[in-house]
Nucleic acid binder design. Structure first.
Length: 567
RNA sequence: UGGGGAAUAGUGUAACGGCAGCACAAAUGACUCUGGAUCAUUUAGUCUAGGUUCAAAUCCUAGUUCCCCAGCCA
């Protein structure tokens, strides 16, 4: 290791695993798991955990299980189970035959609970939820023992059996661990192990009316699956002593829990509760709305698994609460899409460009490069004609400095077309809006070439008016207007930071004819605009494109900077 | 005035007592048939105060700030 001149740096989790392996802890065996609760859709924060757990297993030649922590039947649904499996697979990971559910272990957990009662380590408590809270004490004051704490083993056994048999209504009794009501760690103040819940479980149906708490389930589930390294988020650090206590009392295999900081992203909200609210209150169109940070939302937006995985690799992992700049995610996306997305021309805000000296009715097929980053992608033919659509933004009657586009007297290149010189425009006399831009072309510049070697600063994209295909384009922006959506005035909530312009629908964009046959989820780059992905709402002949991410726009920066000066 | 964690450029992350590095962002320039991509350059950091040491981001002491915990949620 000291001979290595380029030491590869490892994060603190891999370092712990390395130490364990060096010490021969599990004979080098590494087994992790991704343990979601099926009560919502997976988001980019989960992707971090998935990449960590499955990634570590791959790197160490180990295994990673998928296990649903389904101990609360009131919140969990198969819809979520299915979506989670789909998303993990889409991200590119495989749990093979190791799909588990905490509910698989309900019988074993029940037996262990009985065992703890018999050992005098657990008791049935008749306190109400409210009373339990009062007896628990506070952060600074110790709790008080429950009056039911010293029940005899036989009575506890009888009561617990009858809880299971359904003799008592919800909330009337709990099974609690007998630990220490004075512990400074509130999790150790006789935590509830089982509660009564007459609820239908998505897997076990009505077999049970008592359900184990997460804390009495999670550690043992890891133990049963022989998980060597149980990786979870920071908020469970306080629970580790409790998991360790159960494991020790039960005398079973002890996984090692390691906690890391969950992912936060600027302009984004990651809490499942709030994401659910956004969906329920109709602020977005669903869990897979392309503005959502959910995996399915990102997928629909046009993200690739590669981009997300690379992002997870780059953000690293530590125990520091942090907020990652969404720009990094977008960078990873562009980096991936730049290599793979075919280039096409599309005009979002069309205005007609008429080439006055171009023959009426003539159509030329111009050869265009599909992807300058990938020679193997080849070329295609794009029809060119006298009347084209160009971007509204690409013409200014009065142009600012450094404006390299169409303005009277200025020559620009029509990408893969011809060089044209702007001669003026026609305006709607009523509104003053530009309805037509006029120009003349230089026939010697076919294909956009300049045989005389002359340089033009600007190149703009276009679509033949005669051959254009109509398309809807959905232009997305951040869902929130502030880097921290939770940054709100007193008495208000994150909803005031919802971005009213997070979605702009462009019903009548003009795209080149090759796009007529685009298939759902196809990705492409609209030259000079950004990357786009075909939405599932598309109809034959009427494609719908989601803007995945813009291209970096230097001009917008230049212009934005000068914006204070003049219009 | 309980317990558990964490502090390194704007952001994220390295360093394991020996030259504070990388990525994103930002800025400048080169190049360009995408104001894209690419390339080059620049700006910018060890929470504070003491101490140990030839040498401290790293070890010690004291403080400061932030996060988590009082669900029969996970």
């Amino acid at each position: 290791m000291t001979t290595e001149n380029t030491p590869v740096s490892t994060d603190f989790i891999r370092e712990i695993i390395n130490e364990d392996n060096r010490a021969g802890k599990h004979n080098g065996r590494v087994h992790t798991r991704f343990p979601p609760e099926p009560n919502g859709y997976l988001h980019i924060g989960h992707a971090k955990s998935i990449c960590l757990n499955f990634g570590i297993a791959q790197e160490y030649g180990g295994l990673c299980n998928l296990r649903f922590d389904d101990t609360n039947p009131c919140k969990e649904e198969v819809e979520y189970v299915d979506s989670i499996m789909e998303d993990v697979r889409w991200l590119g990971f495989d749990w093979e035959d190791r799909l588990f559910y905490a509910s698989d272990y309900f019988d074993q957990l029940y037996d262990w609970a009985v065992q703890m009662i018999e050992a005098g380590k657990a008791y049935v408590c008749d306190l109400s939820a409210e009373q339990t809270r009062q007896f628990r004490g506070t952060l600074t004051e110790p709790g008080k023992n429950s009056p039911y704490r010293d029940r005899k083993v036989e009575e506890n056994l009888d009561l617990f059996t009858r809880m299971k048999a359904g003799e008592f209504p919800d909330g009337t009794r709990t099974l609690r661990a007998k630990i220490d009501m004075a512990s400074p760690n509130l999790n150790m103040r006789d935590p509830v192990m089982y509660r009564i819940l007459h609820a239908e479980h998505h897997r076990t149906g009505d077999k049970w009316c008592i359900y184990p708490m997460y804390d009495f389930t999670h550690g043992q589930s890891d133990s049963l699956e022989r998980i060597t390294h149980s990786i979870c988020t920071l908020e469970f650090e306080n629970h580790r002593p409790l998991y360790d206590w159960y494991i020790q009392e039960l005398g079973i295999f002890a996984p090692r829990q390691i906690e890391f900081a969950r992912l936060n992203l600027t302009y984004t909200m990651m809490s499942k509760r709030r994401l659910l609210e956004l969906v329920r209150d109709g602020h977005v169109a669903g869990w897979d709305d392309p503005r959502m940070p959910t995996i399915c939302g990102l997928r629909r937006r046009g993200y690739t698994p590669e981009a997300i995985r690379n992002f997870c690799k780059r953000i690293g992992v530590s125990k520091v609460d942090s907020v990652v700049d969404i720009a990094l995610l977008e960078h990873c996306l562009r980096e991936d899409l730049n290599k793979r997305a075919p280039r096409v021309m599309a005009v979002l805000k069309p205005v007609k460009l008429v080439i006055d000296n171009y023959p009426d009715g003539q159509i030329e097929e111009m050869e265009a490069i599909n992807n300058p980053e990938d020679a193997a992608a080849g070329t295609r033919l794009v029809p060119f004609s006298k009347v084209l659509y160009i971007e509204e933004d690409d013409f200014r009657e009065e142009a600012p400095k450094k404006y390299h586009r169409l303005t009277p007297g200025q020559e620009v290149r029509l990408r893969y077309g011809y060089l044209v010189t702007c001669t003026g425009c026609v305006k709607d006399p009523a509104t003053g809006a530009v309805v037509e831009v006029h120009c003349t072309y230089d026939p010697a510049t076919r294909g956009g070439n300049t045989p005389d070697g002359r340089k033009v600063k600007g190149t703009i994209h276009w679509v033949s008016a005669a051959k254009a295909v109509d398309a809807e384009v959905r232009v997305y922006d951040n869902l929130f207007t502030k880097p921290d959506p939770g940054d709100v005035p007193d008495g208000q909530d994150y909803r005031v930071n919802l971005n009213p312009k997070s979605l702009e629908i462009i019903p009548a964009a003009k795209v080149e004819p090759s796009l007529a046959s685009a298939k759902i989820n196809d990705k492409c780059q609209f030259e000079r605009l950004g990357y786009f992905s075909v939405d599932k709402d598309s109809q034959p002949g009427k494609p719908i494109f989601n803007r995945t991410v813009t291209l970096k726009d230097t001009w917008a920066k230049i212009e934005g900077r000068g914006a204070g000066g003049e219009g």
